[in-house]
């Protein structure tokens, strides 16, 4: 008996669920050679709005978890990624047209990046925070705190690009709405399947597929988004996005490389400084 091909339906990932686009739209994802791979949901501005609502609802709980706990949750995702290695390799070879060896290298790099950022969860505060010297009988302490919701335009390099922008944003306790690569969204949705079976609370990571040019302006101007990561927005009118974000004083990261760095974590935090008396007499 011949096996019937079962094409997979790729949907959005919002608030821990896999909804279709509110608009009902889909678009074809094709392989590098032009052959049909899958239909993916084409997110609308209302999907972006719903994602922000889900991210806002999840933010206090995620930020309230201890750094150690967040680290454990992130490590667990790395374990699950490792278990799905073959699937990711297959998706990357088909969408990006690279060899299995190159795809394998990308998946390994993505997992390594994830583990590297997970390690920072209970350490970045010690590095980025400080006990400031002040002239008086006071402790003066600065600590970084998550900024809130980060909207991200992911780079086109499917899995590695996505992991490199999402992991640093959530390490500190932010929640994210990420627009996956338009041409290579498959690994983004597979990552969502990993997240859905992990310990990450629903809404911490929300993944939209579709046109970044269409959705990003709505996220950039959204008053309930606190920061904008334009790492993958090189091909968009990203200066306009930056201008739209200025209205609500968002933190903005302009397009550039996505190498692992502590700066990516600290860039989406706010510094809180407190004074406390050294003694009570």
């Amino acid at each position: 008996m011949t096996h019937l091909a079962v094409p997979k339906t790729y949907k959005l990932y919002i608030g821990g669920k896999f909804p279709r686009s509110e608009s009902g739209r889909t678009y074809e994802v094709v392989a590098r050679d032009g052959s049909f791979l899958a239909n993916a949901a084409k997110a609308s501005r209302k999907d972006a709005r719903d994602a922000v609502v889900a991210a806002r609802a999840a933010q206090p709980g995620w930020a309230g978890a201890t750094g150690y706990n967040r680290g454990q949750v992130l490590y667990r995702i790395a374990e699950l990624l490792e278990g799905r290695r073959a699937q990711f390799v297959l998706e990357i070879t088909s969408t990006e047209g690279v060899t299995a060896a190159a795809a394998g290298k990308q998946v390994d790099a993505a997992i390594d990046t994830w583990v590297w950022y997970a390690g920072w969860a209970d350490k970045y505060v010690q590095v980025a925070g400080n006990a400031n010297a002040v002239s008086g009988p006071y402790f003066n302490i600065s600590v970084p705190e998550p900024t809130g919701i980060v909207a991200i335009v992911a780079p086109p390099d499917s899995l590695l690009g996505l992991v490199s922008v999402v992991a640093p944003a959530i390490v500190s306790g932010n929640t994210v709405v990420v627009i996956a690569s338009e041409t290579a969204p498959l690994s983004a949705i597979s990552l969502a399947e990993v997240l859905a079976t992990s310990d990450v609370p629903g809404g911490v990571i929300n993944i939209l597929t579709g046109s970044a040019a269409e959705i990003a302006p709505w996220l950039a101007s959204h008053a309930d988004v606190n920061a904008l990561d334009l790492t993958g927005a090189e091909s968009l009118e990203w200066v306009d996005l930056q201008i739209a974000a200025a209205d609500t004083l968002k933190r903005v990261r302009t397009p550039g490389d996505f190498g692992a760095s502590l700066d990516r974590i600290v860039g989406f935090t706010e510094t809180k400084t407190v004074w406390h008396t050294k003694s009570l007499i």
Binding site: R56, W218, S221, A223, D224, V225, A244, D247
Partner: peptide, 9 residues
Amino acid sequence: TGHYSGPDY
């Protein structure tokens, strides 16, 4: 305003 608002406003 033409853009989404938030509970801070």
